[in-house]
Design a binder for these strands. Structure first.
Length: 691
RNA sequence: GCCGCUGUAGCUCAGUGGUAGAGCGCACCCUUGGUAAGGGUGAGGUCGCGGGUUCAAGUCCCGCCAGCGGCUCCA
């Protein structure tokens, strides 16, 4: 006698076990028609699930009752489409062995092992999609059946699929006492797959799908294991939704900082200079310099002092800090002294000997610095320190070098040389809380000024069961409490993540969501008990005893390269006035107005604005098009009508129409104010009424 | 680093065994104009690099370099 509670709280009682589909039918034919699955006690399940005891049931349809697309419905759809794609691929490439095919937020993939002599190519997509379309058109039902473990294993062994056997073994290990299979159609007759489900009722529900791309993966993510081909696809209930998805991808591509970086001439990567090495062009450098000057000003207010350090240091320094040879693989190969090289070569040292010595850290030379902290520590340690001197806050836009794997490099966001807006704070234990709070405040100001208001905070705490952490547990407790408290004071989403601390101390990471919803880890604040110990740092306390200072590493932007890369995408290249490489471009209507236009440019430049003149022989329309494509905040059209009134006709980026005429002096004042105030008040706010 | 794809003019791309192309950009000329491209002419390429096959290679094969999509990694 199952009693079934529906989402509205009503209860339906049945004489005997029923399927979710039957319940849906009892509610209404249209609901049953629209149903793609259900949630039984909150758990996503097939529509054909038999309900034989009391439970809560929600019927899943394409859209939630509020009218939004239901993520569960898409999950079912994509999981099902993965089966259809796998069937199509196996038909086209006999011998292809299926591994694992889960749904994703934006689609799904299927990892497949292809025969060596028949890899999958992008050219196969058309045939796969055609085959998929056929399967969808047949509207075959997804039919679940279960077997006891031994029978199911016997079946899989008979089919000889080592990957599916492995999946089944994992399921058993996780506690399953039965194995479930899904036939796309009739079991024993149609294509089927070991799968825990659930699925939509039939292939006919798949409204629109697309095979997207190929990638490679490893079995179990292990690079020493089998190499698999990952086939990505996506599916939606309607063609319209798929089209919208493709549009979004296209939009994201237009925002891509690598595409915009070229188009807007912000940075350049040159083959001959090297992979992952960013050349900041004049335009990009404006953005970087504005950011540096601004954050530098904030730091001065907060009691930081600037330091400058070389880009290299002796290997011994990094042996003390622990970076070498432990992280040797992610560093550039050390720079060796001539004398050292000739000495070891005289001793008969071979290349492989040298390589081994390097692995052991047993060589002499210099390292391109992978981090700034050791240099800053040496500055701290260059003179005796009293407790009265603390905290000492040393800041530097410090350039570091890391040997990222070539496949990891990506535009400005993953590079081999980058500049950290770094600082190291040396303080007493009792000052940690306040210093951390100060760092967080700075990060918050930075993000909010740039409109990166959607961010969350991850507080990495130590794993209480692990012994890998340095320092006194009681001190850790205090530092963790300080981080936790400071983070929660910020009023953003905070998550505590035990086990995510660095081995040397707890850390706070800022994860920013950009305007298209992608998350980026940018700013970070880390408490460090390790390096002060390794370098035996001390200060003299009020008790005239030596005490160990605590270090805080912090970088609100992270790296300038990554930060600017993210900003390019965040603003889609349309930077706010104060960051714009070219803030105002003056467009004379014809040559006759060139003189006045030059005067306008001069006035703007005098006011500290970055202004240029477009005196090409294009017509105004052409100049506007060109200026708009460069995403310049203000285009000033000037013709005889403006010259006569000593005025300018203002066109702001993103506005469909021009804002109208404004006296030149007023525009200069308003733009200068917008620049200084970082956009708090804009020129538009100062336009005469009626705009 | 691994797998797959790609590499042709400054940019975006067409050309798949037989004399290197287009659009945009650039230069010059005409046009002197009022809010997202007026018209014309022209310059510009060892087809990523190195080998090979062929009477003939941008095109086919091999190696390398770089970019892209992933995987793995990220102090």
């Amino acid at each position: 006698m199952p009693r079934i509670t529906l989402p509205d709280g009503s209860v339906k009682e049945f004489e005997s076990p029923v399927t979710a589909r039957q319940v849906a039918e009892s509610i209404g034919a249209r609901l049953a028609q629209a149903a793609v699955g259900c949630r039984v006690d909150g758990e996503l399940a097939d529509l054909g699930t038999v309900l034989d005891r009391d439970c809560s049931l929600a019927i899943v349809t394409e859209k939630t009752r509020a009218g939004d697309p239901d993520p569960d419905a898409l999950f079912l759809l994509r999981h099902s489409t993965a089966h259809v794609m796998a069937e199509a691929i196996q038909r086209i490439v006999p011998g292809a062995q299926l591994v694992y095919g889960p749904p994703l937020d934006t689609g799904f993939y299927y990892d497949i092992a292809f025969p060596e002599d028949r890899p999958l190519k992008e050219g196969d997509f058309e045939a796969i999609e055609a085959e998929m379309a056929r399967i969808v058109k047949n509207d075959r039902p997804f039919t679940r059946y279960e077997l006891p473990v031994d029978e199911g294993m016997a079946k899989l062994k008979g089919e000889g699929s080592k990957y599916k056997i492995d999946n089944a073994e994992q399921a058993v290990k996780a506690g399953s006492d039965r194995l479930s299979f899904y036939a796309t159609g009739e079991p024993g007759k149609d294509w089927e797959d070991l799968c825990r489900g659930p699925h939509v009722p039939g292939t006919g529900r798949i409204g629109a799908f697309k095979v997207m791309s190929l990638a490679s993966s490893y079995w179990h993510g292990d690079e020493n294991s089998d190499r698999l081909t990952r086939v990505y696809g996506t599916a939606f209930f309607s063609k319209k939704d798929l089209d919208a998805h493709m549009m979004r991808i296209e939009e994201a591509r237009k925002r891509d900082h690598r595409v915009l970086g070229r188009k807007l001439q912000l940075f350049h990567i040159d083959e001959q200079v090297g992979q992952g090495l960013i050349l900041w062009t004049p335009r990009g450098s404006v953005i970087r310099k504005e950011l540096q000057d601004w954050i530098g000003g904030e730091l001065r207010k907060m009691g930081y002092t600037d330091v400058y350090c070389p880009h290299i240091g002796k290997l011994d320094l990094y042996k003390t800090s622990g970076h070498f040879p432990y992280y040797a693989e992610s560093q550039f190969v050390p720079v060796m002294e001539r004398d050292f090289l000739s000495k070891v070569s005289d001793e008969g040292c071979s290349c492989s000997d040298l390589s081994n010595m390097m692995g052991e850290g047993d060589i002499e030379g210099y390292l391109l610095k992978p981090m700034n902290c050791p240099h800053h520590i040496k500055i701290f340690d260059s003179q005796p320190r009293s407790y009265r001197d603390l905290p000492i806050r040393l800041s530097e836009f410090g350039t570091v070098y890391r040997w990222e794997q070539s496949g990891e490099l990506n535009g400005m966001t993953r590079v081999r040389c980058f500049t950290v807006d770094d600082a190291h704070l040396f303080c007493r234990e009792d000052q940690v809380g306040e210093e951390v709070r100060g760092c967080l405040k700075l990060v918050k100001i930075a993000f909010e000024t740039l409109g990166l208001t959607d961010f969350r905070i991850r507080v990495g705490l130590r794993d209480p069961d692990s012994s890998k952490y340095v320092g006194d547990p009681a001190v850790w407790d205090k530092a963790e409490a300080a981080c936790r408290e400071a983070a929660s004071e910020l009023g953003a989403k905070v998550s505590m993540e035990p086990g995510e601390a660095a081995f040397y101390g707890p850390k706070i990471d800022f994860v920013v969501k950009d305007v298209i919803g992608r998350e980026w880890q940018l700013g970070t604040v880390q408490v460090d008990y390790n390096l002060p110990q390794r370098f035996d740092l001390s200060y003299v306390g009020a008790d005239n005893q030596r005490h160990r200072p605590v270090m805080i590493h912090r970088a609100p932007f992270g790296s300038l390269e990554r930060f600017v890369g993210v900003l390019i995408e965040h603003f889609a290249g349309a930077f706010p006035l104060w960051l714009s490489p070219e803030q105002v471009r003056v467009l004379p209507i014809s040559e006759k107005s060139n003189d006045y236009a030059k005067e306008v440019v001069a006035k703007l430049t005098e006011a500290g604005l970055r202004a240029t003149l477009d005196d090409s022989d294009n017509r105004v329309q052409g100049k506007i098009k060109a200026g708009s494509e460069m995403k310049i905040p203000y285009l000033l059209v000037v013709g005889p009508r403006d010259a006569e009134n000593r005025a300018v006709s203002v066109r702001a980026f993103g506005e469909e129409k021009d804002l109208g005429q404004m006296p030149l002096e007023d525009f200069v004042a308003a733009a200068a104010e917008e620049h200084r105030g970082k956009g708090k008040v804009t020129v538009k706010d100062r336009m005469p009424a009626g705009v």
